[in-house]
Structures are given as structure tokens and as C-alpha cells.
């Protein structure tokens, strides 16, 4: 599914003291089967707009042939929502009295997905995110925050959507898990042609895997560029510089000619070659 945001405005409670600006004249295209990174505040709205939970104040969202405007009628909302899966950072919408099994079952039923062997399908979904089948009978309230994150992703994967949106997914994961999920997202993109939208504040989670980076500052789209942007100065007006980039830039400033890397092992090899 190709996603186009066309002159999109999204502002809540306009001209009151409660005014909240999400998006302000944003134009962008998210291609089918790509991984894009969004950096900025309050970007959960992207997921809500694509799922038509929230309507834009002005402008339009184009999903293939479907156009969502402020007042346009959508014939079959379920058909649209089936294609999109969101993993948000808040857990407010999940009932804590359920077990993981009933949560997965409920999600698949809600989105109208009927696999032939439902138990195997549930176990497989959990396996993809790195959890074993003992989790099926765990109650939601006994899960830790990182396990909860993985279960939410398993729920999304279980109904096989075309677009997966993840908000601050890397927060709270340790290094090994971060690397696991970065590889998983690449696999989902390359093998299953999924579109993956990563909303984050940590650029190092996006290194190497993203095709495009969008930076949204105070509602405006300030940067929309491909993955080479990580080495450019203009990005760091809005986002904090990852340590590895700032080290390389400092060394270059001091007239040492080293190339730029986003992987620490490569950087160490480069330093070794350069210093020796």
C-alpha cells in the first residue's frame, strides 16, 4: 500500500489554550515495501490518520485509490484497518485481565483473519517476536514492559497487515533485542514486502535499515531524505547526534582523515588503519 500525505494539516482545539499541533502542511510519500523513520513529537497521529481513526483538519491522505479527507465517507473501514497494524507505546487500550492467548484470538477475530490452524498460527506469531509458547497462558498483567511490547507486535503480526507502524519500539529494549528486531524488520520488508514505519527519537535504531527519514519539528516537515542523511549536519539541528557520528565528526574537525561509519566495529578497523 502506497501512502501519500497531501498538504495535510492536523490541529486539535484550534485557537484555544488547549491547541495541539500535530501536522502542519505536510507533503510526503511512503512507498510500498519500504522502511521509513519518523523523528519528532506526537507522531502517533500518523497511525491514527492511516487507520482513519482520526481525520485530518485539512488536506488528504491517499492510500492507493482510497482518499481520506475531513468529511469523506469510507465504505468499509474494517477493510482498510485490516491492512494496517499499530504498536503504540501506551498500554491503555489493552485489558489486563486477559491471557495472551485470548488477546491474540480477539485481535484476529476483530480484524477478520481466519487461519486454518489457529493455535499453530498463534505460536508462530509469538515465535517471530522471540517468545516461546509458554507465553500463551500468561496473563497480560504479569508481563514486563518489554514482554508486553513483544506481545503487542505479535498481535499485529498475527493478522498479517501490509503496513506496520511502531512508536518508540526500541525504548526499554536491551542491545541484543534491538539488533534482533532491526533484523526482523529488514526481513519483513525484504521477504514479505511489508511497509514499516518506525517512529522514534533514537537515530541509532534507524541506522542501516531505513530507506527514508522524515523529521517533523513543531508540525512542519523539515527534513525528508534518504539514508545518507545521517552524516549531514542539517539533520542535527533538530535531533540529538548519536555518539558515533559526533566522534567521527570531531576527529575530522581535528584534521584526521577517517571515513564515516554507523557500525562501531567498522569504525575501530578504520581507526586502526588510520593510526597505524
Amino acid at each position: 500500500m502506497e501512502i501519500i500525505l497531501n498538504q495535510l494539516y492536523c490541529i486539535d482545539n484550534k485557537k484555544t489554550s488547549m491547541e495541539k499541533k500535530y501536522l502542519d502542511d505536510v507533503n510526503l510519500v511512503i512507498n510500498k515495501g519500504s522502511i521509513v523513520g519518523f523523528v519528532g513529537e506526537n507522531l502517533r497521529i500518523i497511525g491514527d490518520l492511516i487507520m482513519a481513526i482520526k481525520r485530518p483538519s485539512k488536506g488528504e491522505v491517499k492510500l492507493d485509490s482510497l482518499i481520506i479527507k475531513r468529511t469523506s465517507h469510507i465504505d468499509n473501514v474494517l477493510n482498510l484497518r485490516k491492512k494496517v497494524g499499530c504498536v503504540y507505546s501506551s498500554n491503555i487500550d489493552i485489558a489486563i485481565d486477559e491471557t495472551v492467548k485470548s488477546l491474540l484470538k480477539k485481535t484476529m477475530k476483530n480484524y477478520g483473519y481466519k487461519p486454518s490452524n489457529i493455535t499453530k498460527h498463534m505460536v508462530d506469531s509469538l515465535k517471530i517476536v522471540g517468545l516461546d509458547d509458554s507465553f500463551l497462558n500468561r496473563e497480560i498483567k504479569t508481563l514486563s514492559s518489554t514482554e508486553m511490547k513483544k506481545v503487542k507486535l505479535a498481535c499485529v503480526i498475527s493478522y498479517n497487515p501490509e503496513v506496520i507502524i511502531l512508536e518508540n519500539f526500541e525504548k526499554g529494549l536491551i542491545y541484543r533485542e534491538r539488533e534482533y528486531f532491526r533484523k526482523l524488520f529488514l526481513k519483513l520488508k525484504n521477504k514479505f514486502k511489508k511497509t514499516i514505519i518506525l517512529i522514534t527519537t533514537d537515530l541509532s535504531f534507524l541506522f542501516e535499515i531505513v530507506d527514508k527519514v522524515f523529521v517533523i519539528n513543531n508540525g512542519k516537515l523539515v527534513i525528508s531524505d534518504d539514508k545518507d542523511i545521517f552524516y549531514e549536519d542539517k539533520l542535527y539541528k533538530y535531533v540529538e547526534m548519536p555518539n558515533i557520528i559526533s566522534f567521527t565528526k570531531y576527529a575530522q574537525q581535528e584534521d584526521h582523515h577517517i571515513s564515516e561509519y554507523t557500525d562501531i566495529k567498522e569504525l575501530i578497523k578504520e581507526l586502526y588503519r588510520n593510526v597505524k
Binding site: 536491551i174 542491545y175 541484543r176 533485542e177 555518539n243 558515533i244 566522534f247 562501531i264 569504525l267 575501530i268 581507526l271 586502526y272 593510526v275
Partner: peptide, 21 residues
């Protein structure tokens, strides 16, 4: 082994120390 990383500067220092730099 526990799956944790090191802070960037510490990691870099330890690796470069191994190389004797």
C-alpha cells in the same frame, strides 16, 4: 553475554586498548 551493550566511549576505548592503540 547478557546482551547488554557498553557506552560508546567505553566500548571504543576497550577495543582500541586491545589493539594497543
Amino acid at each position: 553475554r547478557l546482551g547488554l551493550s557498553l557506552p560508546f566511549m567505553v566500548d571504543l576505548s576497550i577495543q582500541l586498548k586491545l589493539y594497543g592503540l
